[in-house]
Design a protein around this nucleic acid. Sequence first.
DNA 1: GTCTATATTATGATAGAC
DNA 2: GTCTATCATAATATAGAC
Lengths: 171, 171
Amino acid sequence: MAERARQIVEAARELLEKEGADALTMRRIADRLGIRAPSLYKHFPDKQAVELELIAQGLQEQAEALMAATEDEQPLVALGAAYRAYALAHPHLYRLMTAGPLPRHLLPDGLEARAALPLVRIVPDEHRARALWAFAHGMVILELDGRFPPDADLDGAWRVGLAAFAQVAAR
Amino acid sequence: MAERARQIVEAARELLEKEGADALTMRRIADRLGIRAPSLYKHFPDKQAVELELIAQGLQEQAEALMAATEDEQPLVALGAAYRAYALAHPHLYRLMTAGPLPRHLLPDGLEARAALPLVRIVPDEHRARALWAFAHGMVILELDGRFPPDADLDGAWRVGLAAFAQVAAR
DNA sequence: GTCTATATTATGATAGAC
DNA sequence: GTCTATCATAATATAGAC
């Protein structure tokens, strides 16, 4: 990727993280670089291509954070904590990464598999792995969307949920 | 609610269910009733008020479906099945109901509690109830968004996930 | 309670000059 | 690779006549 393209993605990411998806417009991205929106189209074919770079970046980062957690002596607990931490640290990016169909065919080769690897590593059974993923995503997205009561003890819900999946492992 | 207002909500619901959130515009709603968009504002202050009626309708219906499931001899399994069935039968409404912050103060009194009641009834522990809710929502929203591999056995994931929560219940 | 006309505000994207 | 000018599209919502 050329230098200018890199700067565009960087500007897009800052905008998304700081102001959310609504602020992620071609004009705002261009503003940040001191150029005009139409100039962006010399570097990317359309807006979706810029978003795709952000999604790929997020998946890669998340994969690295989760993989580190699998080294923990309580990998399931560490994985849950790492999943939640990444989502809360990058709420808008997390939403972009997880909302709507994944444009699989446009992602770098093997990235989706790499993102799933930490989970597969500590939860080999595919049903259990998918159930655990759903639990983690559900917890995170409900928290980000403010759907839990404001005074809910989410640490407690995470603890109990992860314990449930640990038990299934042991049976 | 006056008759015309009821018709507006009905038209809005049909549009949402059949064509999704993008089709839910004041123009399209008016079209369906053979009137012009500005006329709608004689019956509702703004679009959000119409959407709010749809959300309330969905929460009420869902609560009824889930409450029936709690009578089953395997209430946890039945509850999971009912949750998934409602979401898959009304995917766009489900998304509207669950995306973004719940406008609690605008909902009919007690509706949110009524929606949570079936779950609370069979899962008295609040941590476990929230964890189970997150699992169910995660499973459903990932399925609706097409995030699971196309060939994934989701029945299997549901089975294993629900079994995990059943075990926690029994300990 | 309905209409027409319009305000207001955006967006992504293209054409063509430089 | 950048610019200006513009297209094409669309949305919610209001004013004021009838």
